[in-house]
Amino acid sequence: MTRLDRRAVLGATVAAVALMGGMTAAKAEYPEKPVTLVIPYKAGGSTETMARVYSKALAKELGANVVVKTRPGAGGAVGASEVAAAKADGYTLLFAASTSLMWPPLTQKVSSDLDSFIYVGQITEYQQAIVAKADAPFNTMAELIAHAKKNNLNFADQSAMSRSYINFIGGQEGVKWTGIPTKGGGEMVPFLLGGKVDFAYSGGIHQKYGDKMNVLASFQAKPLALAPDAPALGDLYGVSQLGNAVMFAPAGLPDDIAKKLHDAGKAALDDPDFTKILENIKFPKTYVSSEGLVELATENEKALKAMLEATK
């Protein structure tokens, strides 16, 4: 190494040490440095956009900067594993659909599961549904089943999980239909409107199509807030997909920090910018506290396992 190189390295080291010193100055009350909110999906999606606006509201409530970090991969499992492995000090949080944490451990080898996290709060609910084209020969779930008994139907799913649910229903009703995998709502819509499939799982995209698509059933435990007339799978078959965006923290978070996060997370929901964005993307604001979520999740996980058993 030459003289100048060494000097350069030295300079960088000095700068680094100085920076480090500045950051660990004095121990103060949480939060004393920026909080990182990990989003385990690609940038540009609706959950990511929502989380970015929410992070600004959360920052106001916490009185500290909130940095959003996208960490996509394996349907959310990469980001979730990273947060699960992070220090439980409240500076690393996860904003994700709870199914992204629940499903991978059941079917794949991943290093984290729901027990690796505690809930901070539910932010919103996805509007998941079974949908069909408006001019389809069936308009309700019952008519769909009757139609399927006489015809060979195809449906578009968006993940192994959504396919399992629909196949489970088929099994209960004694009909057989074929799941066509799609890469998300953007591919499902042309398939459905173009008549390539007969019905489809929708993660909420059907709301953009007004009267061109019919909601046959809610994919969740209760009827959807925005399509209250359609029955819910939870009521019909006792299974449902927990469709909610939740803020998580790694398990083992000290109680005082958890409480502070909990309060700030709840208060941030009322931020006007965040309210506006939820209105625009047509998501209902459905806050559920951490206690309520534990109950919901355990119930759902049990149902999910039973369903996986049944469709094996």
Binding site: T2, L4, D5, A8, V9, A12, T13, A15, A16
Partner: peptide, 16 residues
Amino acid sequence: IGFEPTMTVLIAVVMY
């Protein structure tokens, strides 16, 4: 170690 120190070394080495 970190981006900045590593890249400082890398650039210097590559340029040399």
